[in-house]
Design a protein around this nucleic acid. Structure first.
Lengths: 193, 193
DNA sequence: GCTAGTGATGTCAGCAACTGACATCACGAC
DNA sequence: GTCGTGATGTCAGTTGCTGACATCACTAGC
């Protein structure tokens, strides 16, 4: 006889998303989640650093995929590299639309989850910037390019969730808007550093 | 005889920044801050929604200044408008360098404060996007332009804090990098919506 | 097959972040 | 002079989260 059912971590993640969707994040206690998953509250906090983190278990993998794409990209310019990273993100989410939709709704309804989401995106930007620097991009430009890439990713993701196009075409639409919006930005003479 | 010293709110803000800088955010309790400010913990939470918010009292005013600049900007393109908003931000910080430096160091050392900072920047982006839409910009482009503007602001702010140039020249340097990084982004044919 | 070790979990006590309810009392309006 | 009123104090309670220690199925080594 097994002492515990396997995959407590997965059960906690599913229970948390369900409960956050049913009654809201604030109205759900860690005890509630643990109870539905059939473990104790203490076990919840062994698997996840806090109540929010339980929704962000995939972000490390997404970050790895995007960093790997940056490192492997054949493009020469920083922005060309970023476009390749966005393609990797599209592949990452290929089979996750239902989960991503539910999760996004919960996050959109909860400021403290938005904070965590924004921090994860920021960390992703830092990781991408590091990967660009490793490729030889100048650090300030790498950081900026990574921020812009993450902004494009975030907008693309939102339109993917709220519309009915595939992720790839949302990225293309966002890149089109990007080009329109920045059409009048010109390279000025090198300013003082 | 006055019952209480005036400006409890200001005393709490100064006490909090001092203590966060002295012993770190995590090691400082709300009780500590209240004690140094000469009030009770309950009073702290009447003035600020949580331990983090005490460092973000100025962000509403910055947001108002940038939104006003967007609304009043004579520029035609979204990005031209954003540049005017950045100029407004530069004015906002003109006399605040010492305070901003100390505060930025505390935030950089504390993930949960970074989260709050990122949320404030995100809210600022949303407000700027709304102001752009009110000027007639298409919503998707407005949201993207606002995100890009906030990214430029954030980078400029960081280099202002860590270097010894004035805010305005940091903005110019960042805009130069922006133009370099996006030099190869071209307007492709309108994709499907 | 026995034993020692390991790892995931349970139990429990405790701190700190907040919140609601109610009391206090200087000050200003009238 | 009385009567709000608003900023504060007091206190009790919930919840997020942590450290310390106990438990016990499973596994490896003998």
């Amino acid at each position: 006889m097994v002492r515990w059912e396997p995959d407590a971590r997965g059960r906690l993640q599913r229970a948390a998303l369900e409960l956050y969707a049913e009654r809201g994040f604030e109205a759900t206690t860690a005890h509630d989640i643990a109870e539905r998953a059939g473990v104790t509250e203490r076990t919840f906090f062994r698997h996840f650093a806090d109540k929010r983190e339980v929704l962000f278990d995939g972000s490390a993998r997404l970050q790895q995929a995007m960093v790997a794409a940056v490192t492997a990209s054949p493009a020469a310019s920083p922005f060309g590299v970023i476009v390749d990273a966005l393609t990797a993100a599209a592949e990452f989410f290929a089979d996750l639309r239902d989960w991503a939709t539910k999760r996004t709704a919960v996050i959109a309804a909860t400021p403290s989850l938005q904070e965590r989401e924004l921090l994860k995106l920021h960390r992703m930007s830092e990781a991408i910037a590091n990967a660009l620097v490793a490729r030889g991009t100048e650090p300030a430009q790498a950081a900026l390019a990574a921020d812009l890439g993450v902004a494009v990713f975030h907008r693309s993701f939102q339109s993917w969730i709220s519309g009915d196009h595939d992720f790839g075409s949302c990225v293309r639409t966002t890149l089109h808007d990007f080009a329109r919006v920045t059409a009048d930005v010109s390279v000025e003479p090198e300013p003082a550093r």
